[in-house]
């Protein structure tokens, strides 16, 4: 139970970081943290007591295995996260190029 709560804590830290921080880079770090929290939660959901890794091999007999599907699925989610993060960082660099600052309170041309 504790691990799930720690996951929730990590997710909350990420969301707090997105909502409260002013620096663009810190916001991106917040996005990454909460992304990892969700991914980790998905892997933990798949854990079975005393289970071994879900890889088939000719030598050993398979008795107790963790759920294999979330591990495959989380890999996809991580790749998506990579794409989003790369794009966000590229945007942040361009923004710094144009505005000369990372502070979102100073980057406010759009309003209304």
């Amino acid at each position: 139970m504790l691990v799930y709560l720690l996951c929730l804590l990590l997710f909350s830290i990420g969301i707090y970081c997105i909502l409260r921080k002013r620096n663009i880079i810190k916001i991106i770090v917040g996005v990454i943290i909460s992304e990892y929290a969700v991914n980790m939660f998905f892997v933990l959901v798949a854990y079975r007591m005393e289970g071994r890794s879900p890889v088939f091999s000719p030598e050993s007999q398979i008795e107790n295995m963790v759920d294999a599907l979330p591990q495959a699925v989380v890999l996809t989610a991580i790749v998506i996260g990579l794409a989003t993060t790369a794009l966000l960082i590229a945007l942040a660099m361009r923004i710094y190029d144009k505005y000369g600052t990372f502070d979102i309170t100073k980057i406010r041309e759009l309003r209304g």
């Binding site: 969301i15 997105i18 663009i24 916001i27 996005v31 909460s34 992304e35 969700v38 998905f42 989610a77 989003t84 794009l87 966000l88 945007l91 942040a92 361009r94 923004i95 144009k98 505005y99 980057i107 406010r108 041309e109 759009l110």
Partner: peptide, 22 residues
């Protein structure tokens, strides 16, 4: 300038939305 700002705002908010969906 404005396009980058809008895109960053959109990307962050939409990513958070995706996280909730996941």
């Amino acid at each position: 300038r404005q396009e980058l700002e809008a895109a960053f705002k959109y990307a962050v908010m939409s990513t958070v939305g995706s996280l909730f969906i996941l």
